[in-house]
């Protein structure tokens, strides 16, 4: 089984079971984009590896299966590299975005052979700076937006304000912007 999306459920800002929210929400307020975001619940407990899937399309999404050949893999917890085959099934010329203190070259070496491009961002550092706690999933959105250009920074900010209010919203936006600026490998 391919597990192309890795996240940790504990990283979610406000709920125990919804780490998909930040990922799917980014496009929901934009009526022209259809997100479908699913989460593999079996390991949804604090600190355990979790797989999530997101589909984004210009048309309504009908398919409900897992994703076996992703275009993009976002590794939110770098410790799963080497333990789980994070690039398994990744399409030729695919994109891997990793939360890491290391350079894209170093991470690429760890990931081994394959036709894909690696980007890194130190989302843990950003999260600790902004939240004071390791909520490093939200900043990964900033990196994803910068690298893929599928959604604009503006759309993400709107979605965050829709889902969160006040200080929590502003901190999330700061974290996303920082990651947008700091992603390496461009």
């Amino acid at each position: 089984m391919a597990w192309p999306w890795w996240t940790r459920s504990s990283n979610c800002l406000t709920t125990s079971s919804g780490c998909g929210i930040e990922r799917g929400q980014i496009c929901s307020s934009n009526a022209s984009i259809w997100p479908r975001d699913a989460l593999d619940k079996a390991r949804d407990r604090r600190g355990a590896p979790v797989t999530g899937y997101t589909r984004i399309s210009d048309e309504p999404i009908e398919i409900h299966s897992g994703i076996y050949n992703p275009d993009i893999v976002v590794v939110i917890d770098p410790t799963v590299i080497g333990v789980s085959p994070v690039t398994q099934g990744l399409k030729e010329g695919g994109i891997v975005i990793v939360n890491s203190v290391e350079t894209p070259q170093t991470v690429a070496e760890k990931l081994g052979k394959g036709n894909f491009k690696v980007y890194t961002v130190d989302a843990t550092k950003i999260a600790l700076e902004v939240f004071g706690r390791p909520f490093f999933n939200t900043p990964m959105l900033g990196a994803l937006a910068r690298v893929t250009k599928i959604v604009s920074l503006n759309s993400i900010e709107e979605a965050i304000r829709e889902r969160f209010k006040g200080d929590i919203a502003e901190k999330n936006i700061t974290a996303v912007r920082k990651a947008y600026e700091e992603v390496k490998g461009l």
Binding site: C27, R36, I61, H64
Partner: peptide, 10 residues
């Protein structure tokens, strides 16, 4: 999960 925990545009 396929619907209960999947986030979609509504």
């Amino acid at each position: 999960f396929t619907l209960t925990h999947t986030l979609e545009r509504v």
